[in-house]
Design a protein around this nucleic acid. Sequence first.
DNA 1: ATGAAAGCGCTAACAT
DNA 2: ATGTTAGCGCTTTCAT
Lengths: 338, 338
Amino acid sequence: MSSEQAHVVTIREVAAAAGVSIGTASKALNGRGKLREETRARVTAAAERLGFRPNPLAQGLLQGRTYTVGLVTGDSFGRFSIPVMLGAEDALGAGQISVFMCDTRDDPIREQHYVERLLARRVEGIIVTGRRTEPRPSIGAGLPVPVVYAMTQSASDDDFSVIPDDRGGGALAARHLLATGRARIGHVTGPERFEAARRRAEGLTDALAEAGTGPAGEPLFGEWTEEWGRQGADILLRAHPDVEAVFCGSDQIARGVSETLRERGRRIPDDVAVVGFDNWEPMVEGCRPPLTTVDMNLGEIGRIAAEHLLEAIGGAPRARGVLTVPCSLVLRESTRVS
Amino acid sequence: MSSEQAHVVTIREVAAAAGVSIGTASKALNGRGKLREETRARVTAAAERLGFRPNPLAQGLLQGRTYTVGLVTGDSFGRFSIPVMLGAEDALGAGQISVFMCDTRDDPIREQHYVERLLARRVEGIIVTGRRTEPRPSIGAGLPVPVVYAMTQSASDDDFSVIPDDRGGGALAARHLLATGRARIGHVTGPERFEAARRRAEGLTDALAEAGTGPAGEPLFGEWTEEWGRQGADILLRAHPDVEAVFCGSDQIARGVSETLRERGRRIPDDVAVVGFDNWEPMVEGCRPPLTTVDMNLGEIGRIAAEHLLEAIGGAPRARGVLTVPCSLVLRESTRVS
DNA sequence: ATGAAAGCGCTAACAT
DNA sequence: ATGTTAGCGCTTTCAT
């Protein structure tokens, strides 16, 4: 335990305390050069005793590195971007890289401002995250540092984005429902203008077609809300009273759907199975019964994005385009086979 | 618009481009010293053209400042700490202070590690946030920089914490229910070991006593879940069938309570009014009917914490103890007067 | 009004 | 094996 002290200790003081020159102290502390073991020990002891920590500003100035990256989000660090951040932080923290956080509140002016600030601070890279995977304007062409988009995509082909495989997620849900013996499958999801909603619907439709089945009607596009889930379920039940399962575009929608199904006398999962999307704990657990759902592996997305950034910082050729990360299925009561 | 360029420009290059010495360039850019207007303009133009941004590492090294603070959370930047962070970032960002984020995953080892790292990076202060307001061990005594706890309290009296006024929040709910003509008020809340649960219950009880009324039975302590809300409502209805309102310790609990009330044939708000706590959008909006709830003003808490930190950094005497921030009531359907 | 030089804390050549 | 020196990018005296 180093002694508590509010004074910031320089290597000069350590050198003085150990009775060596400042250069020798540096070598001793960094394990460089040839030193007598005794000298090295003396310096180390002095440093320990005084609570010396090398000033990274000075080190960075010399090496031309800062060991920092910026994390820019427009999601107000919400439900989606947080797990992504944590995954990213995992990958970066291990490499002794610290993260500057910047929340843009979805304001392009603020975003520009933050990017400038990050560059001024000489971050070595930038990660951009978002609320949904919809394409967004690039934060800037020809920036002096590599940029990776996670859980959001840049509209520019020159940028590199990591997003969940929504289509695969839809297919995953479909195949699971088919495997549990459900054929007539309905789909209630978010607004059609969302790429995520369209991809998930495609995944479902394709997987069903592949299995030689058809869905229970066209996908019902609406809102990302419980309220719409309730409405959508009503519409679905009216058009297809014999529906055996409902795949929902989000857990919130699934929750509304479940509620209406129950109120209309359908037992879950005995009469109708339900699958959600997001694996958002509080929603999933409040559901009755607990909800089988698709997990986007957001942490994995963040980790992969960060790893790519680290490689780019390390000099690897910059990747371009879009990388999709597989989703997984989390099984709970709502699709149990009785 | 500065020209796009990947090269990092130094003041030396700006000086060369403007045909002046490096010292003159510095003065011109910082508005210091006596310079001819024409010279100043020439330097500014060159800097602009080359896209010069002063290296904050070098500036910081010289000034002995870094203009950075650390934000340490154990909440995995969850529902509670995010708004706090955003509030803090608001206050700090305005002062050109950047924020290093560190998520400890509630692991004391990681936390210690992060604190070391932040100190090594010469942050000028640290904000610690948490999931709930329960007291937690201090991150360290005698640190060389000021520390403020937000939405969590340090167990040490020497530290300074900013937390919501849970007791006041409970009283707020009670007085609102009384004002809308409800007398027999039940309370379903989280585990009694949580200070927040106890304070909210006290606020309710005290406000009722002040009004000369008594509550509908003792507070029902349980879990912070919907499931417990459902159970709690059942218990309450059995013991007090004539209950006119339920104050809930969280929105999730309120949601469970609302569901059971509805299933037991009670209309909300006509027969029974419901008030939640947290004002957590997705929960509140999914509730039927939409939930009147207590908002802890988390952003405000973060802002206040950050402002105190800034003052301490600026040399103000360090505050100690606990500062509580008032809650506010958000009115929705669940307590409407018919 | 401008330039030269010192120094912030540190590391890496080069000298001894 | 240790000390000395130069220099990272910048600001700030102090000369000119």
